[in-house]
Design a protein around this nucleic acid. Sequence first.
RNA 1: GCGCCCGUAGCUCAACUGGAUAGAGCAACUGCCUUCUAAGCAGUAGGUUUCAGGUUCGAGUCCUGACGGGCGUACCA
Length: 542
Amino acid sequence: MNDYLQKIISKSLQQFELDALPEIQTEAPKIASHGDASTNIAMMLAKPLKNNPRAIAQLIIDGLNYDEKKISAVEIAGPGFINFRFAEDYLFDELAGILKSGESYGKTDSLSGNKVLVEFVSANPTGPLTVGHGRNAVLGDTVARLLEWTGADVTREYYFNDAGRQMRVLGQSVQARYLEQLGKDSEFPEGGYEGEYIKNIAADLIREKGDALAKSDDWVPFKEKAEEAIFADISHTLERMKINMDSYFNEHSLYEDGSIEQTISKLRKLDLAYDADGATWFRTTQFGKEKDTVLIKSTGEPTYRLPDIAYHANKLDRGFDLCIDIFGADHIATYPDVLSGIESLGYDKSKIDVVVYQFVTIVKDGQPFKMSTRKANFVTLDELMDEVGSDVTRFFFLMRSPNTHLEFDIAQAKEAGEKNPVFYLQYAHARISSILRKTEEAYSFKKEPKLQLLEHSAEKSLIKTLLRFPEFIQSAAESREPHRLINYLNDVASAFTTFYHDCRIIGVENDLAQARIQLAKATARVLKNGLTILGISAPEKM
RNA sequence: GCGCCCGUAGCUCAACUGGAUAGAGCAACUGCCUUCUAAGCAGUAGGUUUCAGGUUCGAGUCCUGACGGGCGUACCA
């Protein structure tokens, strides 16, 4: 419909002989009495045409050639808005279209043919996933789902590094617990991982290998065992959250295939890398930074920036048209260097899009709670899902704009029970399912439905709401903001509930009942498709 | 100090990227279950959108400054 409006408006605008045609914006007014669609184009043109907006609006309307099967009225309102009212036939046709499209209703092809990589979670396997990781995981997965609905071929990737200092300390922590449990002398490493899970891993090792590992002071086998166990745990958690990674990318492979070497030597050739004070530096001052940045420490060990640059080059080498990174706000300062690096290596940095989400503030016992994996101060995602399930968990992280600090009150989430907003959506779906079950017994229809019987204002407004679904998927996908879809689905549930109260199905005359059933089915379709994108179930009973 | 993000109802947050009368959910108050699920509905109350300027037909949204909070600002990841 928006496309159609833009087409007819731009035709009418030809009368003005403008040099530059401004973008024609259409939007759905907030207030129903303002019509079904509206454009501000007359006000945009007031200045270039040196005329008042209402007069321009009248000229545009006079030159408008529209299909009366789609639009029933056009009027000028307020300072110069042009408001359109949709024709009933259009609404009914589109409603039938929803039922016809079924489980693909809402899909678009705006990104079809595009290969997209979404990298998220990417936590090193030093401990279980906590609610702190939850926002990253759920946001990344849902952005991926949204992009799939716009036609993209999406790969979900988990990037990790099992070679760094963190992992060494992890191995040593397990080693210390292992020796401790065997009753031998042990020294717990400085800054070691204190969690209970470390002891469990050590206990498993004793069960499997007895004291065989006590003979050497090599911590590597402990690290390997810990990595394996923790990764298994992480994968299990992700699975519970309905997240399936397509690919795990180990930073280590960038050293093995020479990418790190290549990257640094290319940067040297470009004179963007140089040696000083025993380290190798990246000339980030060239890109507007105050200081240059270390790429390789004097110990010979690269900082994370170098592999990050090589990794992103690797992504683009794999032929992805778009690479999305999901980052917490603490990484905000690091990616400009990566983008600079990528660009100097000759890649198109616009293919990399970084989604930054603000931190989750955990509130526990009414107090802000600082989590630390190392100190074992955390609430795991598994614990949370044990309490509230994956639907509520996902919903909680998706409810808010990524750009705002999310307050996560553990107690509130746990006792959420009946009060949780996710239930409102699921409840609407369950109600419809229940009605459909009952109508199957009560009615049998032989004729085509007569949708034109849907004349009640609650019916009309529900239809109009349902028709906006694709538009919201598109905007949620483009902005990488799943909460927009949630807000929309709330509107759907709310419009349905009004319809439910005003318009009975069972007990009314046959043709009307049949038409209303079609509307209920279309509503269920939208709710189900929407919840599917969010990775949340659409129950038939509650 | 500098950079990024945020500041909207008592609390948690929306507001379709500059549009018309700023909206929901909790919490409070008043009603509504012999009719398709009351995990619901209808209504009341709650606001100088932190403050001060600016830009224009029009600002919660953009620009400047102040105040308040978060995160960065390492040869840590």
